Structures are given as C-alpha cells and as structure tokens.
Simulated assay, not measured.
Amino acid sequence: MTAEVTNQGSDRGMPSISDSGFRRFSELIYSLCGIKLPPHKKTMLEARLRRRLRSLGFGTFDEYGEYVFSPEGMENELVSMINEVTTNKTDFFREPAHYPFLVDKVLPALMRDFEVGIGRPLRLWSAGCSTGEEPYTLAMVLSEFADRVPDFDFSIFATDISTKVLEAARLGIYRLDKVEPVPEGLKKKYLLRSRDPEKKEVRIVPALRGRVAFRRLNFMDEDFGLTESFDIIFCRNVIIYFDRPTQERLLKRFCEHLPRDRYIFMGHSETLNGLRLPLKQVAPSIYQRI
C-alpha cells in the first residue's frame, strides 16, 4: 500500500500522509479532474482529506487509501473526495469591470448581429460556478438589462465538479457579509431577508433562482457531456489550477461550444499567452471566438 503512515501529525493525533501516498493521491486527482498538486500542496491535501478520514472512521491515510483505490471506493468515494480537494473561492460581483462591458458592449453586439436575446434566449454558461455567487450576479445583471430592453430573454447554465457547492448554490442562501458587494438597489429587489431575526442570512428570490440551471460537470470529460452551444462563457479563475497543456486542451473544448464571434470571460489573473486558441482579445481578460 503506497499511502503509508510515516509520522504523527499535529491534527488531533492523526498521522500524516507519506510522500509516496501524496504522489498516489495527487496522480489520482490529476487523472480525475485535471488539478495539478505540486509537492508544496501536501499539507493542504492532508488537511482536506483528514475530513474524509474522520467522516468514514479511518484512523490512517493507509486505511483510507486502501478504501479509495478499492472497487467500492472507486464507485462510492471519488465524488466526496473531489468535493474536499477542489478550491471554491468566489464572490458576488467579483472582478466588477466585466459587468459594464457585458452590458454596454457584448449584449448590444449579440443582439445586433445575431438577434440573440430577442429571436431566441441568450445562452450563458458559468463554468466553475462554486456556491453560485457568479451565476446569480449574472442573473441580476441580465434581469436589469431585460427590464430596459423589451422582450429580451436569457438562460444561465452553471456547472461545478463539486456536488457539495452545487447543493449550496441551488439553495441560494447566503450570509449577510457575503452579499455586501451587491448594490443596495439590487439587494432590495433580488434578496429576501430571513424571517428569523437571529439568522443573518438572505436568499435569492425564486424568480432569479429559476433563471439558473445547476449541474455537475467535470472539465476532464471529453466533450463535457454537452451538445448545446453558448453565446457567452464565464470561465473565471478556473484554469489557474491546471498545467498549461491541460489549460489549452480545456479551452479548446470550450471553444467547441462557442460559435464564431461569441465571447468568453476569463479571470484577470489568467493569461492565454502562448496557447493556440481560436480567440482574439477584445478587452482585458475578455476574448471573442474567431
């Protein structure tokens, strides 16, 4: 067994994972979801997998590894393990400069050139949606646009590999501090305060929740399991977790679901320099399919 115990860790007396065990787990995670875990991520992986050890009642990484790599574990544990190791950082109105460009440039161009939103609903994909802040932000922005443009219609498809964050996203319940970036006018219109004054929470209004369809999706799946195309893809702060060959392969698959002259929004910390892609930059971190 490669996930052997080598020394005692400080976390409630639980053992640490060995170097060979880390390599085996990191290779499995890379093969499952494309996330590269370099050696300096060992402590992070230990901390997150320890939650699974406690939940299942295993005392060592050796025991947990035996289970994960068994036929039963491969069938029943992989989704839960991926839920723990994936990073889910997001906020409402994150990278706010994207939204004025979307409203002032992208939507008018798509309406003018393709009758998108008028002849048929605009189709937008929030890829790597985490707990839902991004797709609900987009739903607010597009709903406000629809209030000003008669007959404008849209749908939002939101995906993540983690079933845990998708459950939270579907509920649409957030702490008050999480919704601080939402402008006051939009808070009053799209957020419902809890009836329990002890709960400092709000919930997205049903009409807005109904605009977003959530689904689990693994970026390592060959065609994402999708047949439809999209007018806009938000894939922000997602590819930073992959190595460059995986980034290029992933973005080429995105482009297969993005018709000519449609748009993809990336994170400001992400660069496509050196990647061979059918995309041209039209604004910082915003690209158009060519």
Rank of each mutant, 00 (worst) to 15 (best):
T271H: 09
V282E: 08
C235D: 08
L277T: 08
R216I: 05
A283W: 06
L217F: 05
V238W: 04
L251C: 07
E222P: 03
N237K: 02
Q281R: 15
S229N: 14
L226M: 12
E270A: 10
S229E: 12
Q281F: 02
L250Y: 02
L279V: 11
E248D: 03
D223P: 05
N218H: 06
G225T: 08
H268V: 13
M220Y: 07
L258A: 04
R253F: 00
H268R: 13
D223V: 09
R276D: 15
M220V: 06
C235R: 06
E270I: 11
L272H: 11
I240P: 06
R253A: 12
M220A: 11
I264V: 15
K252T: 12
N273A: 15
Y263W: 11
R262I: 06
F219L: 15
D231K: 07
R276F: 02
F234E: 03
F224N: 00
K252H: 07
G225W: 06
I239N: 00
P245M: 09
A283C: 01
V238T: 05
L251N: 01
P259Y: 00
Q281G: 13
E270C: 10
G225E: 08
E248R: 01
R249M: 12
I240N: 08
P245T: 11
N218P: 09
T271W: 02
E228F: 03
L258N: 02
L226C: 05
R260A: 13
G274W: 06
T246G: 03
K252D: 02
R249T: 13
C255K: 10
A283M: 00
K252F: 00
R262T: 11
N218F: 04
N273T: 14
L217V: 13
L272I: 15
T227W: 01
F254M: 09
F242Q: 03
Y241K: 07
Y263G: 08
I240C: 04
T246E: 10
Q281Y: 00
Y263P: 09
T246H: 06
E248L: 01
E228Q: 15
I233W: 03
L250I: 14
R236C: 07
E256K: 14
L250D: 03
L251P: 05
D261W: 09
Y241G: 08
I233A: 01
T246M: 12
K280H: 10
L226W: 04
G267W: 06
F234W: 00
Q281K: 15
N218D: 12
L258H: 05
I240G: 05
F230D: 09
P278N: 12
K280A: 10
F265T: 05
P245F: 09
P259T: 07
L258G: 04
G274Y: 10
N273I: 13
E270V: 10
F265Y: 10
Q247I: 04
G274V: 09
T246I: 13
F265G: 04
I239K: 01
E256N: 14
L250S: 03
N273F: 11
